[in-house]
Design a protein around this nucleic acid. Structure first.
Length: 944
RNA sequence: GCCUCGGUGGCGGAAUUGGUAGACGCGCUGGAUUCAAAAUCCAGUGGUAGCAAUACCGUGUGGGUUCGAUUCCCACCCGAGGUACCA
């Protein structure tokens, strides 16, 4: 009986689906285990072998936990809102919902073919109204919340209104807009409804604000900084300009400290924690006010700066503002006006990336204005320079050239003095940036002090003068939450006659995306939803209605922006716990049981996007009492990237002649990528196949060497455009899902990026066949196991494997456990093992890796229910006890021979036995050994 | 520049955390089987020298600690990813 993977795999996949084998049980008495992989965006290209790497690892772990008796929740779904579907809709006019649906079907087929143990009854799709009603719901709760810094948590806006009514906003410590004015209870009560709304908006956790954004006219949308590459959009490569727009923002900065603190308690990879820590960018220092010295008829302005080195304040010899700083236009003197304006224009043309990347060129302009040093009273010239960014801190710095290299370079370039305020240090060549050893000099009352003490005293002095205070600054910005797109969640928001936002009633959710004729922005530059003719809110009927009925009395226009990609993924892990709940995002009972994600597997590229935003939402949900934990994933694993092997053929320059790899040397050729799937294991390709592949090669001439045509190979990121993708379907067809699963794991450590080479699959396929043979040693290779006692050798092999594989799974070291299985099967084959007492546990052991084969063998072994929930084999160390050890005997650290000695021998006896051996005498050539090191059970080393 | 990860045969990788470097697999070489091929099985396979026993070299480079270093320390080189004039 041969190993017919196709028939076996199809049969068990059907069995699992029909029996709902992997359904997560709720309620349940068993302990829970929640294994989650980041859900995919269903693109039109389908899955390639890079995608399932993390899925397979997660599935192995989930299956392992099932054997350990856990009630496992392993769901899957689709992050199905996104730009590609919208771009496709723009090109073809097809509704994104239609193409998304088709893509999901294809993904599902591919996922099913790999044999994942998902509970598909819990599937979520972020683009489904019954899912996104809860995304909209979270938005509404954020709108209805403010951050109470005293309690250090979010609270309903109603508690804020109570405070305002009682005592105004004095004494309210909240995360709010910087320009929030102070008001008393009386003033609050006197505010009109609109004024109250406007004021509350300054406190809400999601609020409208003018934000400078990366505007991409071509895409008609705003891009995140990380979506802009070299000044053009990552997708499509369109130009990007900076523009101010009114946007929904998320007050994530309120959570900066807690997002930082929360990292302590979760088992996430350190590099990922580092990335988030740097992104949040906490720095302690002081904010200092420099007052400008007004010219005749001018007013004085405050220039607010943040510095991490208040101790260097006496070293200030100039100030630098970002060219975009709002004061630039106000303080520049008439004489400097032309120069400054020219510089501002020049800077605006440079992308932020460009400005940052260019470290070498120093540029700037003098405004002609001076500010007063808050401690010395001296006049400090105010410059502008593009090394200061408007978006960070206050967009202005106090420049201390002797203590900061960038300030130093700037000062040098423009001939600004570089006063030295450090004891015993020369600043002739470069700035002195060492904080630890700095001793401050030439600095009045702080001369002679160290950095920390000096900083403290300066802050005290500034506070006394009312010109500064100690503060903590975060690099983290509030997150812009509006997208000028169609294919995203609509905001449950309408605008009144004053342009103020109002939520639609909660019971009206979901607010479904309207149909539109065109998916492009409108002619007037409004988002695609501006094309909808039925996109107004009737407050009386509580329903969406025709735009024509808008009267700003009972019928109002709805928000035209949609939510960004990360909205739908910020709570999906909780929704899986209770996916059909119509009353709540998740019931407190369900989340009380499932609680949080025990292991979360996904790419590190989401470090500062999804993984930060979702932590923010979770903390918010926790504050408001909807979830029991403020971190949703205890453990996180980053899987590495799979690289593809591209194939290149050589085209003789300027001709249609292609040369086999060996003939190309010394010739002028251009490398052309061809479909790597057409190349065989020996790097040969059939020219006919190339001709058929693309019409451009139909008439080409191919010069072979030795009758074959060879290609050159190169390893690079697996991608459709590089023609190096390997499709999992073909592999499942040819080698089977179990072989694919084993091979993906066998490739190398999960976290590392590694190249894909399909040729290696024959190795794991051969292993599966050997495994199969172990159970088919009867007449004519029929299935047969013996009921007798296994040999000590058999048991040793089995238990060695149980130990190793169990340890490996727990350490997420799947590559090494595949090796262990191979060694195990090789040994049992050599031992002619046929005993049930060994083969039955072996089937369970391998089930997480090769579930189809294991299920088949399990049923052949006489069982009628699935292997999935069978208890994991228990390791018995008694079978591994050894009585002797093959000791390596080394001389001066080099192993020369080995000796088999009893393990219970004492150090002295080992030494005696080794010294008595004739080979020891040969090695020492009569010299007495200087020293003998004996490590019992490990090694003997003789120094001679 | 900074942060993080990595560098071991022709290739993917392993090494019990300081104790026989190269497990396991691919590839390659030779052999068996076959009309032939596929598949399968057996043997070999880090480099250099040697018929061989064996010797020397060998985990990016250079130092160091140690009886002993792929593993620990110092300095550096290279590659990948992230991030930024973070004041």
């Amino acid at each position: 009986m041969f190993y017919d993977h196709k028939e076996i795999e199809a049969r068990w996949q059907r069995f699992w689906a029909e029996n709902q084998t992997f359904r997560a049980v709720y309620p349940s008495e068993k302990p829970k285990y929640y294994a989650l992989t980041m859900f995919p965006y269903p693109s039109g290209a389908g899955l390639h072998v890079g995608h399932p790497l993390g899925y397979i690892a997660c599935d192995i772990y989930a299956r392992f936990k099932r054997h350990q008796g856990y009630n496992v929740l392993q769901p899957m779904g689709y992050d199905s809102f996104g730009l590609p579907a919208e771009q496709y809709a723009i090109q073809t006019g097809q509704h994104p919902a239609v193409t998304t649906e088709a893509n999901i079907s294809r993904y599902r087929e591919q996922l099913d073919a790999i044999g994942f143990s998902y509970d598909w009854s819990r599937e979520v799709r972020t683009s489904r109204p019954r899912y996104y009603r809860w995304t909209q719901w979270v938005f509404m709760q954020l709108f209805d919340s403010w951050y109470n810094r005293e309690a250090d948590r979010a609270e309903p806006v109603s508690t804020l209104v109570e405070r305002f009514e009682a005592s105004g906003n004095q004494g309210v410590r909240a995360a709010c807009d910087a320009d929030t004015p102070e008001f008393s209870a009386g003033q609050w009560k006197a505010f009109s409804a609109a004024e109250k709304q406007r004021m509350l908006l300054k406190y809400r956790l999601t609020y409208l604000a003018e934000a400078e954004v990366n505007w991409c006219p071509e895409l008609g949308t705003v891009l995140a900084n990380d979506e802009v590459v070299n000044g053009v959009s990552e997708r499509g490569g369109f130009p990007v300009v900076r523009k101010k727009m009114t946007q929904w923002s998320m007050r994530i900065t309120a959570y900066a400290q807690r997002l930082l603190d929360g990292l302590q308690g979760i088992d996430w990879p350190q590099p990922l924690k580092d990335a988030q820590t740097n992104w949040i960018g906490r720095s302690q220092g002081a904010s200092v006010t420099f007052k400008t010295q007004p010219g005749p008829g001018q007013e004085a302005f405050d220039i607010e700066v943040f510095t991490t080195r208040p101790d260097t304040i006496f070293g200030v010899s100039f100030m630098t503002l970002a060219p975009e700083h709002e004061l630039v236009g106000k303080i520049t003197t008439p004489e400097q006006k032309d120069e400054v304006e020219a510089y501002v224009v020049a800077t605006a043309r440079r992308s932020e990336r460009e400005r940052m990347a260019d470290v070498k060129t120093v540029s700037g302009a003098f405004t002609g204005a001076y500010a007063t040093h808050p401690l010395t009273g001296e006049a400090v010239p105010v410059w502008i320079g593009d090394y200061v960014l408007a978006g960070y801190g206050t967009g202005a710095v106090m420049s201390v050239p002797c203590g900061d290299q960038r300030d130093y370079d700037f000062a040098r370039h423009f001939g600004i003095p570089i006063p030295n305020i450090f004891e015993g240090v020369s600043v002739e060549e470069e700035a002195y940036e060492d904080k630890q050893n700095a001793v401050i000099a030439n600095s009045g009352f702080i001369s002679g002090l160290g950095q920390k003490e000096a900083a403290m005293k300066v802050i005290e002095a500034l506070e006394a003068k009312g010109l500064g205070k100690g503060t903590i600054n975060y690099r983290l910005r509030d997150a812009v939450f509006s997208r000028q797109r169609y294919w995203g969640e609509p905001f449950p928001v309408y605008y009144d006659a004053e342009g103020l936002p109002h939520l639609i009633p909660e019971h009206c959710l979901p607010l479904e995306l309207p149909g539109v004729e065109k998916y492009l922005p409108t002619e007037t530059g409004e988002p695609p939803l501006g094309n909808a003719t039925r996109w107004a809110w009737d407050t009386e009927a509580e329903t969406v209605t025709e735009n024509a009925r808008i009267d700003h009395k009972t019928v109002f226009p709805l928000e035209l922006n949609t939510m960004p990609g990360w909205a739908g993924s910020s709570q999906y892990f909780n929704r899986y716990m209770d996916p059909d709940n119509e009353q709540a995002l998740v019931s407190s009972e369900a989340i009380g049981y499932w609680k949080d994600v025990d292991v979360y597997i996904g790419g590190s590229e989401h470090a500062t996007g999804h993984l930060l935003y979702s932590r923010f939402w979770q903390k918010f949900m926790y504050d408001r009492g909807w979830v029991p934990t403020d971190e949703y994933a205890r453990k996180l694993i980053n899987q590495g990237m799979i690289l593809g092997t591209s194939a290149f053929i050589h085209r003789k320059a300027g001709t249609q002649i292609y040369l086999s790899s060996g003939l190309a040397k010394g010739e002028q050729t251009e490398p052309i990528r061809v479909d790597a799937n057409l190349v065989n294991a020996s790097d040969e390709i059939d020219p006919e196949a190339i001709r058929k592949w693309q019409p451009q090669f139909a008439e080409a001439e191919f010069r072979t060497e030795g009758g074959v045509f060879k290609v050159d190979r190169e390893v690079e990121k697996m991608s459709k455009s590089k023609y190096n993708v390997v499709n999992p379907d073909q592999i499942c067809e040819e080698y089977g899902a179990d072989a694919l699963r084993l091979y993906e794991m066998f490739l190398g450590p999960l976290e590392q990026s590694k190249p894909w080479n399909t040729a290696g699959l024959s190795g794991v396929y051969g292993f599966l066949k050997k495994l199969w043979k172990l159970y088919h040693q009867g007449p004519d290779r029929s299935f047969e196991v013996l009921e007798g006692e296994p040999s000590a050798q058999n048991l040793k092999t089995l238990h060695k494997t149980i130990k190793k594989v169990t340890e490996d799974i727990q350490a997420f070291s799947f590559n090494t456990s595949v090796s262990s299985f191979m060694i195990c099967v090789n040994e049992l084959t050599a031992q002619h093992c046929r005993e049930r007492a060994v083969l039955e546990p072996l089937a369970i052991l391998i089930e997480p890796y090769a579930p189809h084969m294991a299920e088949e063998l399990w049923h052949k072994l006489g069982h009628t229910t699935s292997i999935a929930h069978v208890p994991y084999p228990e390791f018995n160390p008694a079978f591994l006890v050894e009585s002797t050890k093959e000791y390596p005997i080394s001389f001066n650290g080099k192993v020369r021979f080995t000796m088999e000695l009893p393990l219970d021998l004492s150090k002295e006896d080992i030494e005696a036995a080794v010294l008595a051996d004739s080979r020891t005498g040969e090695q020492l050539q009569g010299r007495p050994p200087k020293k003998v090191i004996v490590v019992p059970g490990r090694i003997v080393n003789i120094v001679g």
